[in-house]
Amino acid sequence: MSWFSQTLTSSIGKKLLMALTGLFLISFLVIHATINAMIFYNDGGETFSHWGHFMGTNPIIRTLEIGLVAGFLIHIIDGLMLWKSNRDARPVKYAVNNAAANSTWYSRSMGLLGTLLLIFLVIHTSHFWIPNRSNQFATGEELNLYQMMLDIFQNPIVVLIYVLGCVSLFWHLLHGFKSAFQSLGLNHVKYNGAISFVGTAFSIIVPILFALMPISIYLGWVK
């Protein structure tokens, strides 16, 4: 095995990949949340559709989208590989385990939270991204994503699924944001406070912003 693949398949290398792809996906969330928040202009989707059109047709963005899909795949596959090897590292479980005494439940449940997010991701992309891209591929025309949102979020069960997805995202980010910096070796007394503050604030603000979108449409605040 070359030194490069040896590095990336080592325990620390796998963590490095999780951290880098995790931070990359976090940067995607910033863009995604910002553009979707344009619906709160409540202008019948005009601003939202303007930026949606830019994101869906700009060649640079479309190229970066390939990187985004790769980032998701690496994060998911690497996460599953880590989950498997970490589980194998303790074949016999403890009869009594008081893990709550030494760590938070969500830091120990990143695999579970990630799986919930994966299920949500499948539902979410099958609502918007996949139909839109397949239509673009087939006819060259974009779908009216704003109208699709208004239609899809009339179903209270769908709204509930989206809110639960945001709750999973909150807990996943609350540990993942800070954890990524530690995995990259970026642990320094001068910056730890700032990383922790930004991480916590990000984990709260972004999921709330996302959750408000289906709720606002369902309740008729955004038309």
């Binding site: 080592s10 325990s11 620390i12 796998k14 963590k15 880590l82 090897s85 970490n86 194998d88 590292a89 303790r90 893990a99 030494n102 760590s103 938070t104 830091s107 120990r108 990143m110 540990h175 800070k178 954890s179 530690q182 995995s183």
Partner: peptide, 18 residues
């Protein structure tokens, strides 16, 4: 040392702090 740690079958770090 890291290569030997991996060869021994220890798991990877999830930064739980336990």
């Amino acid at each position: 040392m890291v290569a030997q740690m991996d060869a021994e079958g220890f798991g990877a770090c999830t930064n739980t702090g336990a």
